[in-house]
């Protein structure tokens, strides 16, 4: 006699990630953060696209870093075409 096995409808849910990663802050990963010289900045937006964390926003029309997420990689400072970004110590 074979026992009836549960069908897929009866199986319990597996592990479903249910929290947005925005609740997990990665800002303490690095020791440096970008410092913007808004006089020099041409608003080219490149730093927004290059940031691996999506931590550089342009909502205000100029670059602003969200320090809750910036990992201090330094890509933005390395790539800014007019050298408007300098890496400085966090905190």
């Amino acid at each position: 006699m074979t026992e009836a096995k549960p069908g897929w409808r009866e199986l319990p849910f597996g592990a479903v990630p249910y929290k947005p990663s925005l609740e997990y802050h990665t800002g303490d990963w690095g020791v440096e953060r970008p410092d913007f010289d808004l006089e020099k900045c041409t608003r080219c937006t490149l730093c927004h696209f290059y940031c691996p964390e999506g931590a550089i926003g342009f909502d205000a029309g100029y670059p602003e870093v969200d320090l809750r997420f910036c990992k201090g990689c330094g890509i933005c400072a390395n790539e800014c075409p007019v050298e408007a970004i300098r890496m400085v110590r966090k905190g």
């Binding site: 609740e23 990665t26 999506g54």
Partner: peptide, 17 residues
Amino acid sequence: DLLASGHRLCAGCAEPI
């Protein structure tokens, strides 16, 4: 951005870009 901040790829990783 449809891939949100707070992921844990290495600092400087090209994949999330």
